[in-house]
């Protein structure tokens, strides 16, 4: 095997659940403050999932105190403790950038399996 592939294989994480754009997830992030470490949970809608090996990432959007917040997490980063799938959404595209222009009721995503 190619050395490059081998290095990527060592750095890649395979413990991520199967989720896609439109799903609601809880991302547990390790936060290092000084020398203390704690876990913070960021819950929101996946608006983009970038495929790839070590460079794969996910962008999660939530509304926090009336302000839209988006965070992008590298999926292979050890800073991400785990990702929990909360619910699956039914959406018709893979990049949900249109949610940025919507708010309130219009920004809801229909749940999968419920018509």
């Amino acid at each position: 095997m190619n050395v490059l592939e081998q290095i990527e294989k060592e750095n890649i994480r395979h413990d991520m659940p199967d989720f896609r754009a439109g799903d609601t997830v809880k991302v547990h992030i390790r936060i290092i403050e000084g020398n203390k470490e704690r876990v913070q949970i960021f819950q929101g809608v996946v608006i983009r999932r970038r495929r790839g090996t070590v460079g794969a990432s996910v962008t999660v959007r939530k509304i926090s105190h009336g302000v839209g917040v988006e965070k992008t997490f590298p999926l292979s980063s050890p800073r991400v403790e785990k990702i929990e799938l909360v619910s699956q959404g039914r959406v018709r595209r893979s990049r949900l950038y249109y949610l940025r222009d919507l708010k309130g009721k219009a920004a809801r995503i229909r749940e999968k399996g419920i018509s």
């Binding site: 190619n2 050395v3 490059l4 290095i7 990527e8 750095n11 390790r30 290092i32 090996t53 070590v54 460079g55 590298p74 292979s76 980063s77 050890p78 800073r79 991400v80």
Partner: peptide, 21 residues
């Protein structure tokens, strides 16, 4: 030069690296 990739340090910092034979 073999190519470039990304590795993560133990603190979780992503480092862009070049692999050289």
């Amino acid at each position: 030069k073999i190519g470039m990739t990304r590795i993560y340090s133990e603190e979780g910092v992503a480092i862009a690296v070049t692999v050289i034979e």
